[in-house]
Design a protein around this nucleic acid. Structure first.
Lengths: 218, 218
DNA sequence: ATAAAAATTTAGACTTGCCTAAATTTTTAT
DNA sequence: ATAAAAATTTAGGCAAGTCTAAATTTTTAT
C-alpha cells in the first residue's frame, strides 16, 4: 500500500500539525525526519499526488482526510506494539521506541486486530499516549506541561514530551514516572526550577525537565 | 546489518542448498526469489563481497559459515513469529507465512530472546518445522514423504512440503494435520493412491497429496 | 568433436529515496 | 519600500535493487 518512507512522513506530519496548524513547513519536517529540505519537497509532492496531503508550493503540507486516517492507523500500530513489548516481553519504557518503529510497518489488518484483542484493548501506551481504536478514535485528554503549572497546582504525570531513552532513564533515577501524583510547592524565580511534592518526598526539577513532563491537573 | 533483500536471498539459498549441494544455481535462486537471473547474479556478487556466500562465476552459490549463521537466525525469527501468531493471535496455520515473512526482518536481539522466552521455547513451528535455538542449533528429525512409505508403515505427520494456504485448508477439510497418527493400509498400483487408517477412520489420499506430507516413522 | 540449446553474466537503464548546489520565493529588518 | 536573510524548490546526481537485451560460458545432443 504505502512505502515505509511514505508512512514515516505521514506520521511525522501528523505529529507536527499540532504545532503547525496552517501547514507543516518543509524545514520542520526535514528536522523531524532527519533529512534535507530538498528530500522533503520531493516526498511531499509524491504524497500530494497520492492525495494523502494537501500541498501548495511554499505553503507547507497538511494531511488530507485519507492521509490522517492512515497516520492514525500507523500510530495505533506503533502504540499497540509498545504496549506489547512492555507488558509481554519485559521491555522497559525507554527501550520500546526503536523496535516499535519497525513493527508499526508490518502490513496485516488481522495482526493488529488480534494483537489488540490479545492485549485486551489497552487505552494508553507505556508513555501515557492514547492508543487509537480500530475506528481511529482516541481520547486526547487535556494535559499541560509541568513547566506551565503554577504554585500549588496538583495532578498526575500522564506523558512525556521527550521520549528519548536518556530522559526516561533519568526519570527512573528520580523515581518518578507515569502515574506519579505531585503537587507544585515552589517555583524559583531565578531559573524556573520547580519544587514538587511527590509521594510525600520533595524533589526539585530543572525547567528543562519540567518542560518535558505532561501533567493531568486535578 | 543486512538489507531486507540480502536476508531473503540468504534464506532462499539456505533452503535450496538441500537440493543443490554443489552450489545453488542462479536460475534456481531466481525462481525461488521470483526475480530474474541477472538480478540474482548482481546480488550473489554482493553477498560474495560480504563473505556471506562463496561464489565463482557460473558455479552457483554456497553459504559461508557466517552466511549460514545469519540464515539460521532469520529462520529462527520466522518460525518463532509463526508460532506466536498461531498460539497467541488465533491465526490458522495457513495464514501465518506472509506476515512472518515481514516480522522476521525486525532487527532486535532482545525482541527475539524475549519472544522465545514468552512462548516458552517452542521446538517446532505450526508446520512442524524445527525452530533453531539462540545458538542456531536445531534438530532435523528424520522424516520421510508419505508417498515414500510402504504398506503397514505407521507414524505421525510432522510436516508439510507444500505450505500453501490451499493445501493446508485441504488438510483441515480432511481432518488431518500435524500430529495425526496413521498407518498405511494399502497402496493402489494403478495410481499410487494411498489408503490410511487415521484415528480409527480410513481415508484415501492421492499420490500428489501424499507427496506433500512428511511422516516420522515409528 | 562440435553445433545447438540452456544457463549465466554483462551492459545499460529504470525507480525510489536520498543528496548537494544553485535558483527562486518569502520573510524579516531597517 | 527594499535589501538581506531565511526558507523552499529545482536541477542534476548517487546507491540499491530491479529489469531487458546482448554477450559469453557451459551443457547437451548427435
Amino acid at each position: 500500500m504505502f512505502s515505509l518512507s511514505e508512512e514515516n512522513y505521514l506520521k511525522a506530519i501528523f505529529h507536527l500539525e499540532k504545532n503547525y496548524r496552517n501547514g507543516v513547513s518543509t524545514n520542520a519536517l526535514a528536522e523531524e525526519m532527519e533529512t534535507k529540505a530538498s528530500s522533503v519537497t520531493d516526498m511531499v509532492k509524491k504524497l500530494s499526488e497520492k492525495k494523502l496531503v494537501n500541498y501548495k508550493k511554499y505553503q507547507g503540507a497538511k494531511l488530507s482526510d485519507s492521509g490522517r486516517r492512515t497516520a492514525v492507523e500507523i500510530i495505533r500500530r506503533h502504540r499497540l506494539w509498545e504496549y506489547f513489548l512492555v507488558e509481554k516481553l519485559n521491555f522497559s519504557w525507554d527501550e520500546v521506541h526503536e523496535v516499535a518503529e519497525e513493527l508499526e510497518h508490518i502490513k496485516s489488518e488481522k495482526l493488529i486486530t488480534e494483537l489488540d484483542k490479545f492485549l485486551d484493548y489497552p487505552r494508553r501506551d507505556p508513555h501515557g499516549d492514547p492508543i487509537p481504536d480500530a475506528q481511529g478514535n482516541f481520547v486526547q485528554t487535556s494535559k499541560v506541561l509541568l513547566s506551565a503549572c503554577k504554585k500549588s497546582d496538583s495532578g498526575k504525570i500522564v506523558g512525556v514530551k521527550d521520549s528519548s531513552a536518556a530522559f526516561l532513564q533519568y526519570l527512573d533515577k528520580l523515581d518518578i514516572g507515569l502515574g506519579s501524583i505531585l503537587e507544585v510547592r515552589h517555583i524559583e524565580d531565578f531559573d524556573q526550577s520547580i519544587e514538587l511534592e511527590v509521594d510525600s518526598n520533595t524533589i526539585t526539577l530543572s525547567h528543562k525537565t519540567a518542560s518535558n513532563l505532561y501533567i493531568q491537573l486535578e
